[in-house]
Amino acid sequence: GKMTGIVKWFNADKGFGFITPDDGSKDVFVHFSAIQNDGYKSSDEGQKVSFTIESGAKGPAAGNVTSL
């Protein structure tokens, strides 16, 4: 299901970062391709987002990331 969290950091040059879930669980990796914004796929530190957890090649990753 959908979770909410805060972007801990995001490196636009490398195209990835981490989200800290609101439920206190482990930080989740986020790749720019998962960000659902139109246009520039980046996110700012401290941005509140909703997301799903997908199982990626390197473990859990955020999917369907949407700014709230």
Rank of each mutant, 00 (worst) to 15 (best):
51 F>M: 01
25 S>Q: 06
67 S>L: 15
20 T>C: 11
47 Q>G: 08
65 V>W: 02
22 D>W: 05
46 G>L: 11
22 D>E: 05
44 D>T: 15
9 W>R: 01
27 D>K: 03
40 Y>I: 12
64 N>K: 09
30 V>K: 00
45 E>A: 15
35 I>Q: 03
3 M>N: 05
25 S>V: 03
62 A>H: 02
17 G>M: 06
66 T>I: 13
8 K>S: 06
44 D>L: 15
62 A>E: 02
56 G>H: 11
30 V>D: 01
16 F>Y: 14
2 K>P: 09
33 S>Q: 05
11 N>L: 05
50 S>P: 01
12 A>H: 14
42 S>H: 13
12 A>R: 14
54 E>F: 13
30 V>G: 01
63 G>M: 14
24 G>T: 02
62 A>L: 02
16 F>H: 02
3 M>L: 11
24 G>S: 04
16 F>A: 00
30 V>E: 01
65 V>P: 01
28 V>W: 03
7 V>T: 01
52 T>N: 07
21 P>R: 03
61 A>Y: 15
59 G>D: 03
54 E>A: 08
10 F>L: 03
17 G>I: 05
42 S>I: 14
37 N>A: 13
59 G>F: 07
33 S>G: 06
29 F>Y: 09
46 G>D: 05
2 K>Y: 12
68 L>K: 04
7 V>S: 00
36 Q>Y: 10
40 Y>L: 12
28 V>C: 06
36 Q>W: 10
64 N>Q: 09
51 F>Q: 00
55 S>K: 13
40 Y>N: 09
2 K>C: 13
29 F>R: 01
48 K>N: 05
63 G>P: 02
49 V>Y: 04
3 M>P: 03
13 D>I: 14
38 D>Q: 11
25 S>Y: 04
47 Q>W: 15
34 A>W: 06
27 D>W: 07
26 K>D: 11
28 V>K: 00
55 S>T: 13
15 G>Q: 03
8 K>R: 11
38 D>S: 14
10 F>H: 00
47 Q>M: 13
49 V>D: 01
61 A>C: 14
47 Q>T: 13
22 D>N: 05
37 N>R: 10
4 T>H: 07
64 N>R: 08
33 S>K: 07
53 I>S: 03
11 N>G: 03
22 D>I: 05
36 Q>M: 13
58 K>L: 11
23 D>S: 06
48 K>I: 08
11 N>Q: 04
54 E>K: 10
10 F>A: 02
46 G>A: 07
12 A>I: 12
42 S>G: 11
50 S>A: 10
14 K>C: 10
41 K>L: 13
2 K>R: 13
36 Q>E: 10
24 G>L: 04
29 F>E: 01
35 I>N: 03
16 F>I: 06
59 G>T: 03
48 K>V: 08
40 Y>C: 13
4 T>L: 08
22 D>Q: 04
17 G>Q: 00
61 A>E: 15
53 I>G: 02
14 K>Q: 07
67 S>A: 13
17 G>W: 04
42 S>M: 13
4 T>R: 06
4 T>K: 06
29 F>N: 00
7 V>I: 15
52 T>E: 06
13 D>F: 13
24 G>A: 04
41 K>D: 10
1 G>Q: 13
28 V>Y: 04
60 P>W: 09
49 V>F: 05
65 V>N: 02
12 A>P: 11
2 K>I: 12
51 F>Y: 10
41 K>R: 12
16 F>W: 14
26 K>R: 12
35 I>T: 04
46 G>Q: 08
17 G>D: 01
68 L>S: 06
56 G>E: 07
55 S>C: 14
6 I>M: 08
54 E>Y: 14
38 D>L: 14
24 G>I: 02
61 A>R: 15
18 F>V: 05
57 A>P: 14
36 Q>F: 11
41 K>I: 13
8 K>I: 07
30 V>A: 02
34 A>F: 05
59 G>K: 05
43 S>P: 15
57 A>Y: 12
37 N>Y: 13
16 F>T: 02
9 W>F: 08
6 I>V: 12
59 G>S: 05
56 G>P: 03
48 K>D: 02
2 K>F: 12
11 N>S: 11
19 I>Y: 01
37 N>W: 14
4 T>N: 05
41 K>Y: 12
48 K>C: 12
1 G>H: 12
40 Y>E: 08
16 F>D: 00
37 N>F: 14
54 E>W: 10
50 S>Y: 08
61 A>H: 14
31 H>S: 07
48 K>T: 06
49 V>K: 00
30 V>F: 15
42 S>W: 15
44 D>W: 15
66 T>Q: 12
11 N>M: 03
46 G>P: 09
47 Q>N: 09
49 V>R: 00
39 G>E: 09
66 T>S: 08
50 S>V: 08
56 G>C: 10
15 G>T: 06
14 K>R: 11
46 G>S: 07
5 G>T: 02
14 K>I: 09
11 N>P: 01
11 N>F: 05
47 Q>A: 12
15 G>V: 03
5 G>Y: 03
42 S>D: 08
14 K>N: 05
38 D>P: 13
45 E>Q: 14
63 G>C: 14
17 G>R: 00
62 A>I: 03
17 G>K: 00
57 A>E: 11
35 I>D: 03
30 V>H: 03
1 G>P: 13
18 F>L: 04
19 I>R: 00
42 S>C: 14
6 I>H: 08
26 K>L: 08
61 A>G: 04
65 V>T: 01
57 A>W: 13
41 K>S: 12
13 D>Y: 13
17 G>S: 02
58 K>W: 15
24 G>E: 03
44 D>I: 15
60 P>T: 09
21 P>I: 04
55 S>L: 14
19 I>S: 01
53 I>K: 05
7 V>H: 01
52 T>M: 07
63 G>N: 11
25 S>P: 03
54 E>V: 15
21 P>D: 02
15 G>W: 04
33 S>P: 02
62 A>T: 02
65 V>Q: 02
17 G>V: 05
9 W>T: 00
32 F>M: 10
44 D>N: 15
5 G>S: 02
63 G>A: 15
43 S>V: 15
60 P>L: 12
21 P>N: 03
2 K>L: 12
34 A>H: 06
63 G>K: 15
49 V>P: 00
41 K>C: 14
24 G>F: 04
42 S>Q: 09
23 D>L: 04
49 V>S: 01
43 S>F: 15
67 S>Y: 15
16 F>N: 00
61 A>N: 08
66 T>H: 09
51 F>V: 01
31 H>A: 06
16 F>V: 03
32 F>C: 12
58 K>T: 08
12 A>K: 15
37 N>D: 13
2 K>A: 08
4 T>C: 12
26 K>H: 09
3 M>H: 10
38 D>W: 14
62 A>R: 01
41 K>A: 10
39 G>D: 11
29 F>G: 00
34 A>E: 07
5 G>P: 00
1 G>V: 13
18 F>T: 00
54 E>Q: 11
27 D>A: 06
21 P>T: 04
66 T>C: 10
62 A>N: 02
56 G>I: 04
38 D>N: 12
54 E>P: 01
53 I>N: 02
22 D>F: 07
65 V>L: 04
9 W>M: 03
30 V>L: 14
1 G>I: 13
27 D>Y: 04
41 K>W: 15
54 E>G: 07
7 V>F: 09
56 G>M: 08
33 S>N: 07
33 S>Y: 06
34 A>D: 07
39 G>P: 10
64 N>F: 09
21 P>W: 05
39 G>M: 11
50 S>H: 06
7 V>P: 00
56 G>N: 10
37 N>L: 12
28 V>H: 00
64 N>H: 09
43 S>M: 15
63 G>D: 06
24 G>M: 05
42 S>N: 10
41 K>M: 12
13 D>Q: 14
29 F>M: 02
43 S>W: 15
1 G>Y: 10
64 N>Y: 08
37 N>T: 13
38 D>F: 14
6 I>T: 13
30 V>C: 08
20 T>S: 10
1 G>T: 13
43 S>C: 15
68 L>R: 06
8 K>W: 05
27 D>Q: 06
51 F>W: 02
45 E>W: 15
18 F>M: 07
12 A>Q: 12
57 A>K: 12
4 T>A: 04
6 I>F: 10
10 F>Y: 09
68 L>W: 06
19 I>L: 05
57 A>D: 10
44 D>C: 15
59 G>N: 05
43 S>Y: 15
38 D>C: 14
59 G>Q: 04
65 V>F: 02
37 N>V: 12
45 E>Y: 14
45 E>T: 15
39 G>Q: 10
64 N>V: 06
62 A>M: 02
8 K>F: 06
61 A>S: 12
22 D>V: 05
32 F>A: 11
56 G>V: 05
21 P>C: 07
55 S>F: 15
35 I>G: 03
5 G>H: 02
20 T>G: 03
32 F>G: 06
53 I>M: 09
51 F>E: 01
32 F>T: 06
4 T>Y: 08
19 I>W: 03
49 V>T: 00
39 G>A: 10
5 G>R: 01
59 G>M: 04
22 D>P: 02
27 D>C: 09
50 S>D: 02
8 K>Y: 05
3 M>S: 06
54 E>C: 13
15 G>N: 03
20 T>N: 03
61 A>F: 15
25 S>I: 03
46 G>W: 11
58 K>G: 09
60 P>K: 09
29 F>T: 00
33 S>M: 07
67 S>D: 06
48 K>P: 10
53 I>V: 10
34 A>V: 08
1 G>F: 10
53 I>D: 01
51 F>R: 00
12 A>D: 07
6 I>Q: 07
43 S>R: 10
36 Q>T: 11
44 D>E: 15
18 F>Q: 01
34 A>K: 08
36 Q>S: 11
40 Y>W: 15
